[in-house]
Design a protein around this nucleic acid. Sequence first.
DNA 1: GGTACCGGGACTTAATCCGTCCCGGTGATA
DNA 2: TATCACCGGGACGGATTAAGTCCCGGTACC
Lengths: 342, 342
Amino acid sequence: MRDMLDIQKLLVPDLLDSMKKRYTVLQHILVSGVVGRRTLAASIGSTERVLRGEVEFLKEQGLLQIDASGMRITEDGRALLEQIEPLVKDLFGLTEWEERIRAAFGLKQVVIVPGDSEASPHTKKELGRAGASVMRKLVKEEEVIAVTGGSTMAEVAVHLNATASMKSCWFVPARGGLGESVELQANTVAATMAKKAGGRYRLLHVPDHLNDEAYQSLLQDDHITEIFHFIRRARMVVHGMGDAMVMARRRKVDPETTASLQREGALAEAFGYYFDRNGRILHKMPTVGLRIEDIQAMDTVIGVAGGHGKGEAILAVLRHGHEDVLVTDEAAAAEIVQLMSS
Amino acid sequence: MRDMLDIQKLLVPDLLDSMKKRYTVLQHILVSGVVGRRTLAASIGSTERVLRGEVEFLKEQGLLQIDASGMRITEDGRALLEQIEPLVKDLFGLTEWEERIRAAFGLKQVVIVPGDSEASPHTKKELGRAGASVMRKLVKEEEVIAVTGGSTMAEVAVHLNATASMKSCWFVPARGGLGESVELQANTVAATMAKKAGGRYRLLHVPDHLNDEAYQSLLQDDHITEIFHFIRRARMVVHGMGDAMVMARRRKVDPETTASLQREGALAEAFGYYFDRNGRILHKMPTVGLRIEDIQAMDTVIGVAGGHGKGEAILAVLRHGHEDVLVTDEAAAAEIVQLMSS
DNA sequence: GGTACCGGGACTTAATCCGTCCCGGTGATA
DNA sequence: TATCACCGGGACGGATTAAGTCCCGGTACC
C-alpha cells in the first residue's frame, strides 16, 4: 500500500493535497458534530469560499449532509473516515513533521521520504531522488553548485537529470576530500551530476586536511587559487551530513585531532566542519574549498541525509542555523522530532 | 489496496483519471523511445497544449527528460512505470469494461464496482453506494422516481441521502410487488429512500400479478387509479435485475405461468417483466404500475445489479435496449464482457 | 545544405476559482 | 414571545489558471 502512495505522490501530488484537505474538513465536522461554514473555515484556517467548495463536493458525494442548522457527517462519511484514517496518518504524519522541523529552524523547505535509508536501499534511492528533485526546483540559470561527497550525495547525483537551467550550471566540489573512496568523493559526485544534468564541472585535486605550510604553498599555485575562487562563486551548496567520529575516521584525520574532537563533544560533520550538539563549530583548520563564511553567505544550502542514527547529527547541523532546505528520511526525522520535543 | 483506491475515488474522483493520463503519456514515451510533442499528442488523442502540461509536469518530477530531439523516459520513469503496471491493469481494466459496455448498448454511463456482491457484503454495500451516487447525480427537482424492490435496491436506499433536489422528489414503487418479504418490497424501498432523501413517497398496496377480472375491478377504485397515474408521471426509474426463474419463484408466480416462462427461455426479470436472452419481453400480463411503454418513454432508466451469475440476466435486459445507466460489480461485468465477445 | 520535426515562448480566449457581501431562515436564549 | 447570532445559499466581479493557436530558432537526419 505504501508503494501505491509513493507512486501517487509522484504522479499526482496535488490530488493528495486535495485529499488531505477534504479529509481534514470531514474530520473536523465529525468531531464538531454540527457546525457552520464560517465557524469551520475559521477553525480549519481556510477561507470561507474555498471551504464551501469542498463542502459542496463532499455533500455531492454523500459524505456529509447539510441543513439549516449546519453541516453534519453522514454514516457513509463516518465509515470513510474510519477506513482512511491509517492511510492519512501514514501519508500526512510525515507532512506534519516536515512543517514542525521547518518552522523550528526557519527553513525554506523540509522533505521527508518514508522509510529508513540505512536499512533499505530503496529508501536511500528515494532520498536521492527527493534531493535531486529539490535541486531541480531551486536551481537558477548559470549557477555554480558546490557539492560534497558521501553515499547519499552519490545517490542524489544519480537521480539528477537535464533541465534547461541545469545545463547552464557548473558543478564543483565544496571541498577537496580525497580521503574517501573514489566513488564517494566530492569530485566524483560533482562530475556525475554535471554529466547527468548536462552541465559542466571543475575539480579540486587537493587533500582535505593540510597543515599551514602546505596550505600556504598551495595558495601560490595560480591554477589552484583560480579554482578556489571559482568554487566560492557558488550560490548553492548541496551537502551530506554525518556522524563526526565516523567522518573523522573516514577522512583519516590524525589521532590527536580526533581525540580533541572527541573531547570537545563533536557530534556532526557537514561540508568539512565539525559541530557539537548545539551547532557550534569546533574545529578551525586551514580549509580547502568553501569556508564557513561562504556557506553563511550562500543563497541556498541544501542538506541531504537520512537513516536511523543520523537524527542527532542532522539536528546539530540544523542548530548551526545556516541551512535552507533539509531532505531526510522518516527514520532520521523521527529522531529529530523526538529530540526537539525533549 | 483496492479498498484504499475506492476511498480515494470518493474523496478525489479525478485522481484515477489524472493518474491514467500521466501513465499513458509515460507509457507511450517508453515504447516510442524518443518522440515529439505533436506526434505524441496525435497518437494519444490529446491536444497539443494539454499534453504539454502533462509533459512539463512529468519533466518536473524527473520522470522524463526533454531535449531538442524529443522526449525520452528517464531511469526513474522507467522504474515507476514497471512498478505501476500491474496496478494500472487492475484499475483500468474496470474502466475499460465500463467503456466497452457503455458503447455496445449506447448507454449514458456504466459504473462497475470492484468485487463480487454475491460473495461479499462489502461489495454489495459498494454497489448500493454507487447506485445512490448515480441517482444523486442524475436526479432533477420535483421529480417522481419509481423504484423496484430487491436486496440490491434496498442497499441503494440505505445509501441515499438528502440533497436539495432529492428533497423535492416523490418516491414511488414501480410496481406493487407484495409477493416478497416486506423489507425487500418496492414499497419499502420507496419509503426508505424518501426518508433518507428527505423527500415524500406514495405507496401502492396491490399484489403484483392479477387476473384480468381483479385488474378491472381495481381500475374502478379512484384512489388506486390516481396512484397509477401518479406513478406514470415518473421520469426516472431505478430498478434491480434478476434471474427470471428465481424471481418467478420469489414472486410466487403460479406454476403454469412459470412453466410457460421456462419453455420460452426466460432468462431475466426487471421491473416486473421477463426477458429472453435477446431482450425480448416474453410475458404480457395485466400490469400493476409502470407499463413497458412507460419505461420506454422514461428520461432516465437506471439498472442496478451485480454478483457472480447475474451477468447473463443483465445482458438480456441491456439487449432490450431501454437502459440509460448500468451499475454493476466486477463479477457480473466480467460475465457480461465475456458473453459480449463470444 | 536543405528540410522536417523538435521544444519552447507568446498571445488570446474561455473557464474556473475565489473573495466578498447579502439575504431569508432557524434555533437557542433572554 | 421577541431577539439575535449563526446557519446555508445566491450573486457577482476580479484574479488566476487552463488551453487553443501560431511562430520561431535549433537540431538531426537525409
